[in-house]
């Protein structure tokens, strides 16, 4: 079991969901680990990478590589940013001087929920009121990182939480980064179907591992009117289990 971790919070959590970042760090800290937040972190580079702008992505990614000098796991509260660092950094820096460093970083990257279950084997004690919750496991967490089991098993540990399953639960919500901007009509159709499926569960809360999905799903639900709230899974887990 590691004693120290680096927390790479991601640009979206930094600006839009800071409480999710704090919660993620608090969950790890409560297990007795030291959590280091490298203050010079910015963004993993994924937005440019997925838009095809690899030079620009590499420039930003290169600026992250020196943030993790110790041999500690790097925990990321997002499946897609973790996927970028774990699976695409080695390709992005192939043939470049930083390649070895990029591979070393990639080897140490964990998506947060996967780290909590597979590394820390965390045990949660639910202190909250009964609640009906749906989980949208982000595509990157599910497929790229192979960590769909993590979110499900964490929620299952919460005694007063009833987890409900939406139809087509493994289907993408339609975010896809630049996709939502370049193909807005298809993206809209996908998020409409996703929100319909989530509403049909009558959950009062939808949680997810990725800020992008939350922005998409949460933004759509709010635009439609009344509906379930959305929250990053880290924030939800922390709120449910925090001793006050």
């Amino acid at each position: 079991m590691p004693r120290t971790v680096y927390f790479f919070a991601t640009c979206l959590v930094d600006m839009f969901y800071p409480n999710a970042g704090l919660a993620g760090m608090a969950l790890i800290k409560r297990e007795g680990l030291k959590v280091i937040y490298p203050r010079n972190q910015t963004c993993c580079g994924q937005p440019a990478y997925n838009a095809g702008y690899r030079d620009e992505a590499r420039k930003v990614a290169a600026a992250q590589l020196d943030l993790f000098p110790g041999n500690h796991p790097i925990v990321v509260p997002s499946g897609s940013c973790a996927g970028m660092m774990k699976h695409h950094y080695p390709d992005l820096f192939f043939g470049k001087p930083e390649h070895a460093k990029a591979v070393d970083v990639a080897d140490r990257v964990w998506e947060l929920t996967g780290f909590l279950t597979d590394v820390l084997n965390i045990k949660l004690k639910d202190l909250g009121e009964p609640l009906r919750v749906a989980l949208h496991t982000s595509c990157s967490t599910r497929r790229e990182m192979g960590m769909a089991h993590a979110g499900e098993s964490l929620l299952a540990q919460l005694d007063a939480v009833e987890v409900v399953e939406q139809t087509h639960k493994a289907e993408c919500c339609g975010f896809g980064g630049s996709f939502a901007v370049k193909q807005p009509e298809i993206s809209s159709a996908m998020v409409r179907d996703k929100t319909e499926a989530l509403r049909a569960t009558e959950a009062s809360l939808v949680v997810s591992q990725d800020s992008g999905c939350l922005m998409n799903i949460g933004g759509a639900i709010e635009h439609q009117g009344e509906g379930p709230k959305t929250q990053h899974i880290a924030e939800f887990l922390w709120e449910r289990t925090r001793e006050r």
């Binding site: 997925n50 595509c139 990157s140 497929r143 289907e171 896809g176 996709f179 370049k182 993206s187 996908m190």
Partner: peptide
Amino acid sequence: EASTLCGACG
């Protein structure tokens, strides 16, 4: 560009 890169295909 008309893909979310959701990975279902792969």
